[in-house]
Design a binder for these strands. Structure first.
Lengths: 159, 159
DNA sequence: GCTTAAAATTTTAAGCTTGAAGTATTCAAC
DNA sequence: GTTGAATACTTCAAGCTTAAAATTTTAAGC
């Protein structure tokens, strides 16, 4: 492996304004969509995006998740999860359940109330997203999804 | 204009899982890239993304911006801008300048220190983004940028 | 069994973010 | 010129977010 051969091998491509422009555009679109979703969640369900995210993760895991796993799935700090979960517990949407054989960890699980509340929100959420991304055809959506699939390039490498 | 004619007219397309999947993927990539950029800004420049954003907006407008305009450009609340600007003023990166003939408004402007500091950060920032989006060819970046250009569909319509 | 390191979580301080309420200031209409 | 709405901004309370420190519990080596 003496010399670079193909495009894959010499990872850092020509630095381009094109990728910077793409990033700024993704950032703008993401922020705008998030702002609209937040507003709708607030007005129609008196809720927030972080709460929605936590409920969504737990909805996909009926057996519940450890705080640890929740934090990793949502890509937020563990201290952050503690706060959001605490408020959701207060509201009766989720339960903290002791884990047998390890008193350090806690499993968090949707209550019936939480499950029902999320199901309703999720339905509306899917419609909202489709409206907001209306300008993208199903085909383009698929194509972009594929391109985004393995981004960003392995974090931690190539510094 | 009695009846819908082409695809543009009948805006709500078939609701698809494909657009929802695209949204979730954009969200994931955006969060991950933002996390890496935040970390680098923190470690290498002892700064944050919101501060970088404010400096960037002011860098593009040598004549300065009103708090109002800053808030609109960054798509954040005006109360938010007040806080970030206050801290940047304390650090000597920007100045508040009175506006002649309107004592309600303030113009905010980079100091020499701020301009120099941002120039340095911006250079590193461009490299970081290129590394993080290394998996996207320049051509794909251009294509995706075009698709994102007019998203989301006019906010406020089609509810 | 003791000691030490590792793991899971919470707490803390600081900053970011919002929506709403509050404070000046300007503008428009009379 | 006074009143009243509109504009520009700040303040406020609540929640989100992080990194770092602290707490509790488990696991490993001796």
């Amino acid at each position: 492996m003496g010399v670079e051969e193909k495009s894959q091998a010499m990872s850092p491509q020509t630095p381009s304004k094109e990728r910077l422009r793409l990033w700024l555009r993704m950032l703008r679109v993401t922020r705008q969509v998030e702002a609209e979703l937040r507003e709708k969640l607030r007005v129609q369900f008196d809720s927030t995006l972080p709460r929605f995210d936590v409920l969504a993760a737990l909805y996909r895991h009926a057996e519940g998740l450890k705080m640890n796993e929740l934090s990793r799935q949502l890509m937020v700090s563990n201290g952050n999860v503690t706060g959001i979960v605490s408020r959701l517990v207060e509201d009766g949407y989720i339960d903290r359940i002791a884990i047998e054989g390890d008193r350090r960890a806690t499993r968090v699980c949707l209550t019936e109330l939480g499950r029902a509340a999320f199901a309703e929100m999720a339905e509306a959420h899917e419609v909202w997203v489709n409206e907001l991304l209306d300008g993208v055809t199903e085909e383009d959506a698929h194509h972009m999804g594929e391109l985004l699939h393995r981004l960003p390039a392995e974090p931690g490498a190539a510094r």
